[in-house]
Amino acid sequence: MVNPAAAENNFEAKLKAAYLVNIAKFTTWVDAPESIHLCIFSQATIIDEVRKLNGFSDEQLRAIEVIEDPVNLQQCHMLYLDAATFDPSQSNLIQQAHGGLLTISDMRDALKNDVAIQFFVRNLKLRFAINRAVISNSEYKISSKLLRLSKQME
């Protein structure tokens, strides 16, 4: 069959990458890092767009450093887990996450699996939900604005 998916562009991936930047902007880590280390696996469907974030900074964000295929999660402030390419072995990563690691995923049951922020699509618009139990025990603080927007979407 002619597969229109082959002709698709990557706007959804761009949106997700832009959301990751905004989440970084509205999160503060207790160790106040010089740059935010955004970790992602290289087979993720949004990898091309996330790579473009490497070095990005503005007045609200010092800098983003993209780390691909991290071997040690201690170096990560944010970890993105991609639903389409998720490997069950990566589940361990969520369990092993340290208190300062903000996990984000577009998996449907992400929140139930202790991911901090879940992306989902509603009316073909990208939305996010926040796992308040996870963030209450974390070493980062998510702004009230992000929490409010999340609540509106739930």
Binding site: V2, P4, A7, F11, E12, F26, L124, K125, M153
Partner: peptide
């Protein structure tokens, strides 16, 4: 997209799976 506020981003549709302005050339017809 990076220049937009989060509220502005929330208004964009992902249009999955063909999304946004479609690149037609990759289809063999």
């Amino acid at each position: 997209l990076l220049s937009l506020s989060l509220e502005e981003l929330l208004n964009y549709e992902v249009s999955a799976p063909t999304k946004g302005t479609t690149r037609l050339a990759d289809a063999p017809g």
